[in-house]
Amino acid sequence: MTEAFRTVAGRGQARFEISGSEFIGHVAPAHSVDEAEDFIDAISEEYADATHNVPAYRVRAQPLREWASDADEPSGSAGKPALNVLQQEAIENVVAVVTRYYGGTKLGVGGLARAYSRGVKDALDDAGIVEEVPHEQFSVTVEYDDSGSVRGLLESAECEFEAAYEAEVRFEVRAPEASAADLRDRIRSATSGRATLAGDFDN
């Protein structure tokens, strides 16, 4: 999975009403199943008073992980239509939740399917779609003496990172797959092999 893929630029939200029911679509980037499930939990908690919170996600993994739930709506009326939008738009590393406050008028399976599809589509439009290259995530742990040179390397590289300064210094790094191995080699070289690297990689 080294080719570029479509994903959301950030979080998005959209609200609309159909026959008295209020729908709120939410989407967010998700780089792992855990991240997707955390977002679903957070929205379900924030909108705990809603009638339904319908989730769907597509996360790049080996193989691609796809999941959706009708969240007590009639079978096939909510989760699948929500996931279908993500599939049709060919968007990955994305999680969606459509919140519904029931307004007293039943919409029927077809009406619900259209509403949940629109909830995801409108939220995607709000978030915006971008092309992204696959990234690797790994951690680098070093003594304080080596932390300056590692930080300098990371700041000059095409990557994102966060640093935690405790007994040792730990950098959580997210770098493009194409350059991640070279970056790790440079870190090993700069620290004369003293850096401890951990993550899901082959080198």
Rank of each mutant, 00 (worst) to 15 (best):
A50W: 05
S77T: 11
E17V: 10
A78K: 07
N84T: 13
A190I: 01
N84G: 11
P74Y: 06
Y47D: 13
S117G: 12
Y102N: 02
A96Q: 08
Y101L: 02
L86K: 09
A68N: 14
I24C: 03
V94I: 14
D49W: 01
K106M: 10
Y47T: 05
D70F: 06
S147R: 13
I91T: 01
S44I: 04
G128Q: 06
V173M: 09
L86M: 04
A78P: 06
A30P: 11
V109I: 11
I43A: 01
G104H: 04
V94A: 07
E89H: 10
G119C: 07
D38K: 15
V133Q: 15
E143L: 05
G110F: 05
D182K: 13
E131D: 11
E160C: 01
I91H: 08
A178T: 14
V85K: 07
A14R: 01
T196C: 00
T99N: 10
F16A: 02
V173H: 05
G103H: 00
A127E: 09
A28W: 00
D38Q: 15
A123Y: 06
D72N: 15
Y144H: 15
R151N: 14
A127N: 07
E92T: 12
E177T: 14
E155A: 12
Y57D: 06
E143Q: 07
F138P: 05
A48P: 04
P74E: 11
R118D: 11
V120K: 07
A127Q: 02
V95Q: 05
S19L: 07
D200Q: 15
A113R: 08
Y57R: 12
P176R: 14
V97E: 03
V8E: 00
W67L: 10
E143W: 09
E172W: 01
R186M: 05
E3P: 09
R170H: 01
V150L: 00
L112D: 08
K80L: 13
M1Q: 14
Y57L: 08
F201E: 11
A178L: 14
V85W: 03
R11H: 03
F39E: 12
A42D: 12
K121I: 00
A178I: 13
A61G: 15
T141A: 06
D34P: 02
P55N: 14
L64C: 12
D202K: 12
Q62A: 13
G199W: 10
A90D: 15
A123M: 03
V150C: 02
P81S: 00
Y47M: 11
P29V: 01
G152H: 09
T196Y: 02
F39T: 02
A195D: 00
G199K: 13
M1R: 14
V130L: 00
H135G: 10
C159N: 14
A195F: 03
D126W: 03
G76C: 06
V120D: 10
Q137L: 10
T196I: 10
E89A: 14
V97H: 04
T51H: 06
G108T: 06
E158M: 11
E158F: 10
G103V: 05
